[in-house]
């Protein structure tokens, strides 16, 4: 088991290294010069060159990457110029480890920005996750049990509608009616738990989390329904019935256990993906999470910020993958991790 985890972590680290390289390469193959954006409006060629040097873009890609990788572990200065640090320390931006880079457009370290945006995305993701899991499983099971009935068709039809509509549409729609017109829910706003307590935190989250969960719920309803129906055709369910077990026990102990296991894999990965930011939802509700940050960074060609976000996201997915696999070994005795 431990050996397995070590092996998986090892491959995970290699994947992260490759990911960072690919992101670097992709970014530099684009036709835009990032220093144009960092330099600002009143840009002279001299200033531009200076910015380029400060950002380190004057060096070859490989060197930049090596410096970046080193910075993650020991931290670095921008620009990396010891002489300048001696003469004018105020022009130097320090970036302590783990340094993912320094963003000139916002004049702060990437690590700091991610630290700020991360709890917001995490709150959103986890709240939405619980909403769609509960809704998805409940409606999915109901649809499966009432297969072919009006209830089933209604649930499946509704899930198709939510699946088909774009998130921004559902989001704006709910925003307009629920929050502004009827004032049923609070206008979404992120308040950390440390400041306003759980209740305020949750109320501010409710609308965006609900919007986000609707889209995912649609998929989970359909998957749950399919898995429950599949498990009902299994031989072991016939065995359970032929033992004389009560229908409820057949459903909860035998059918659901088998049906929900494959959901674990998907749920884990979906949650991990969302932790990296829900781009559209955050945009619609003006939620300053990782997704919004990523969009801004890309728009500004803020290479360090983009690379930093991509890497954090990749790391989350890799860890989630491992957790899901380990969890699977716990719930399915046939899977022996080793």
């Amino acid at each position: 088991m431990t050996a397995y985890i070590i092996r998986r972590m090892f491959t995970g680290i290699i994947m992260l290294i490759v990911m960072s390289m690919v992101t670097f390469l992709l970014f530099f193959s684009s036709p835009v010069n990032p220093e144009d954006f960092a330099c600002g409006k009143n840009c002279s060629p001299a200033l531009k060159a200076q910015t380029k040097k400060a950002l380190g873009y004057d060096e070859p890609v490989t060197t930049q990457w090596v410096k970046f990788a080193k910075g993650v572990f020991v931290g670095r200065d921008f620009p990396d110029d010891p002489a300048l640090k001696e003469s004018a320390p105020e022009t130097i931006a320090e970036c302590p480890a783990p340094c993912l880079g320094y963003s000139r457009t916002t004049n702060s370290t990437v690590t700091e920005q991610i630290k700020e945006a991360w709890p917001i995305s995490l709150s959103l993701a986890i709240t939405a996750f619980f909403m769609w899991m509960i809704g998805g499983i409940v409606f999915g099971v109901i649809a499966a049990l009432r297969r072919g009935s009006i209830i089933d068709r209604g649930i499946v039809g509704a899930s198709l509608v939510f699946y088909a509509f774009p998130t921004f549409f559902i989001g704006l729609f709910l925003y307009k009616f629920l929050a502004i017109k009827w004032e049923i829910v609070k206008i979404p706003e992120y308040v950390p738990i440390s400041e306003g307590g759980v209740s305020v935190w949750f109320q501010g989250l409710l609308l965006p989390a609900f919007t986000l969960s609707l889209v995912y719920m649609a998929g989970y309803v359909r998957m749950t329904r399919a898995f429950v129906l599949e498990s009902m055709g299994e031989d072991y369910l016939r065995t359970a019935k032929s033992k004389g077990l009560a229908p409820r026990k057949v459903l909860y102990k035998h059918s659901m256990r088998a049906a929900l296991t494959p959901l674990v894999t998907m749920a884990g990965l979906d949650l991990a993906g969302l932790m990296g930011g829900a781009i559209i939802t955050e945009q619609v509700f003006n939620y300053p999470g990782l997704g919004k940050l990523a969009v801004t960074a890309t728009r500004n060609f803020d290479l360090p910020l983009v690379v930093g976000i991509v890497l954090v996201l990749a790391a989350v997915v890799i860890v989630a993958n491992l957790v899901v696999d380990l969890l699977y070994a716990v719930i399915d005795p046939r899977v022996r991790v080793g």
Binding site: R238, T239, K243, R257, A258
Partner: peptide, 16 residues
Amino acid sequence: VAMIFQDPLSAMHPYY
């Protein structure tokens, strides 16, 4: 009345 089935692998729940 009890029943036993053809394929005992699929007739038993894999998780219990």
